[in-house]
């Protein structure tokens, strides 16, 4: 059970004179149950990459295998793929349209062909998962606060029970409080139900605390791929391409360079604290 990208390339506006190569020979393997962060600045190809995973964009060359089957095969049911690989777009609250939150969340399950009763159950379950306040189930989605709208929109995708959930900048435009809540929620979903999560972001610090694996996209291809501490070890290169490693990484490297025997690969405040106390503790 996995997603495999095999030499995937994608070019925008083929034949129009101003072609843009958005993806350039990408090879990736994503296993079941992984929690992955895809990082890159605007235009690095990260959004294009994830839209390939559920078939919304078709590669110009190369192919993608989902659970062993070629998704570009003539007989492959790509509508089914989209429900297996769920996708939460940037500012997902802009897609809400029904008269109540509950009806809106039911939209996806109904499109899957479930009857009203099953769809209701799914919607209920999904809204519980995103900790949406029960008293607002029947509220109009347009009257909610920003954070609640986003939860409702995320529930609309997870109600389809995808095996893989992709979130494109799920915290964009939220304040720190809203951001922590949404990221916490995503982690909880991952830990409890073992769903594969792919988080697209341009913020290293957001992602470092949550994911197990980071893929750094640059010019349409993965530049680094590994555990956060391995990726952040390349902090100088990251800075060159306009992405900063977490502040802590810089500090630990500075200390290490000055001859203190700290582990420079600490990436979170907690890890850094333990390291500094270990080395400087006796002062």
């Amino acid at each position: 059970m996995s997603l495999i990208l095999d030499h995937v390339s994608y070019t925008y506006s083929v034949g129009s004179g101003y072609e843009v190569k958005a993806l350039n020979d990408v090879n990736l393997k994503i296993e079941d149950g992984e929690f992955i962060g895809i990082i890159g600045h605007t235009g690095s190809g990260k959004s294009t990459l994830v839209q390939h995973l559920n078939g919304l964009i078709q590669a110009t060359s190369g192919t993608i295998y989902y659970n062993g089957a070629d998704i570009y095969d003539k007989d492959y049911d790509r509508k089914e793929l989209r429900t297996q690989v769920g996708m939460v777009f940037q500012y997902p609250e802009h897609q809400l349209f029904e008269t109540t939150v509950f009806e809106d969340v039911k939209y996806g399950p109904k499109n899957q062909g479930l009857d009203d009763k099953q769809a209701t159950l799914r919607a209920f379950e999904a809204l519980q998962k995103v900790k949406f306040p029960e008293e607002n189930y029947d509220a109009s989605p347009f009257e909610l606060s920003g954070g609640q709208k986003r939860r409702a929109a995320i529930a609309g995708v997870i109600a389809m029970k995808p095996a893989v959930l992709i979130l494109d900048e799920p915290t964009a435009g939220l304040d720190p409080k809203g951001r922590d809540e949404i990221l916490g929620l995503i982690r909880e979903m991952h830990d409890k139900s073992g769903i594969t999560i792919i988080l697209v972001s341009h913020s290293m610090e957001d992602v470092a605390n949550y994911v197990d694996r980071i893929i750094v996209m640059e010019k349409g291809a993965p530049l680094f791929d590994g555990a956060p501490r391995e990726v952040f070890a390349n902090y100088k290169k990251l800075e060159e391409i306009g992405l900063a490693a977490p502040q802590v990484t810089y500090l630990m490297h500075d200390l290490y360079d000055q001859g203190y025997p700290v582990d420079p690969q600490a990436t979170t405040v907690e890890e850094a604290k333990q390291e500094i106390l270990r080395v400087f503790g006796n002062r």
């Binding site: 304040d175 720190p176 409080k177 922590d180 610090e205 977490p246 502040q247 802590v248 500090l251 405040v269 850094a272 604290k273 500094i276």
Partner: peptide, 10 residues
């Protein structure tokens, strides 16, 4: 609930 920079926090 403000976002204290990592260095300040550390």
């Amino acid at each position: 609930r403000l976002d204290v920079p990592q260095v300040t926090l550390l």
